[in-house]
């Protein structure tokens, strides 16, 4: 459809750069840069990564709850639902659907819905630098569950907390995983300041994000 556009733009680029071929050294250096990407300057991490993660996450207006086992996830969600009338109607990522959810709740295991009070999804990693969580899309964790709920519950294993995003990229490279459609780096609830410069939460996504940090 736009093959001509492709050739034309590439030709313009090559012409602008002097129409020269890469030297072997340049090609090798690019290859090396792609295979083992250099890490740039980064902020320092103060103290234990997990402590900084928790402090930064709270600074990002996440709420953080630490539990000793994944078995305590369901009770943690129950506590979040205290005071909610009627039968709880929540969405759970397939990855977490086996954890013994109450049989009298309405549990949606699948992508997010228009009206989505609470969703529970797993995180791949936590980043101490910024107090962020990283979530990958897969058949076990649809992305829409990260954005449609009013309250998003993120399950993170303490051992998955690393210093920096680069550590997560290194892990994914070394595990040679099939790259997911979506990688979300989430660092707080949805917000906007587009009306009068006043910060409003939420904008389009969750108004609250609760991290359940599981010690393992």
């Amino acid at each position: 459809m736009s093959a001509s556009g492709r050739e034309a733009v590439l030709a313009r680029i090559k012409a602008a750069l002097g129409n020269r071929l890469l030297t072997e050294a340049e090609a090798a250096s690019i290859e090396k840069r792609m295979k083992s990407p250099p890490v740039g300057p980064r902020p320092g991490i103060s103290g234990e990564a997990i402590e900084q993660f928790i402090a930064k996450a709270k600074g990002n207006l996440f709420t953080v709850e630490r539990v000793v086992s994944l078995q305590l996830l369901v009770p943690a969600v129950k506590r979040l639902l205290e005071g909610v009338d009627g039968i709880p109607d929540i969405s759970v990522a397939p990855a977490l659907s086996h954890l013994g959810w109450p049989t009298d709740w309405d549990i949606n295991v699948g992508p997010g819905r228009r009206i989505e009070p609470i969703s529970v999804t797993p995180a791949l990693a936590g980043i101490a630098e910024t107090g962020s969580v990283i979530l990958l899309s897969s058949s076990a964790s649809p992305t829409s569950l990260n954005f449609l709920p009013d309250v998003h519950v993120v399950v993170l294993r303490a051992s998955d907390i690393v210093g920096f995003a680069e550590d997560v990229w290194a892990r994914l490279r070394s595990e040679n995983v099939d790259w997911p459609r979506t990688v979300n780096i989430i660092s707080g609830p949805s917000r906007t300041a587009d009306v009068g410069g006043i910060v409003v939460r939420p904008a389009h996504g969750p108004k609250a994000v609760h991290i359940v940090l599981v010690d393992d």
Binding site: S138, W179, R181, N184, I185, S190
Partner: peptide
């Protein structure tokens, strides 16, 4: 709040 990497269309078994 959000930094998102999108790569290709949904995978075969994505929901």
């Amino acid at each position: 709040s959000y930094m998102t990497l999108s790569t290709g269309p949904r995978r075969a078994d994505d929901l």
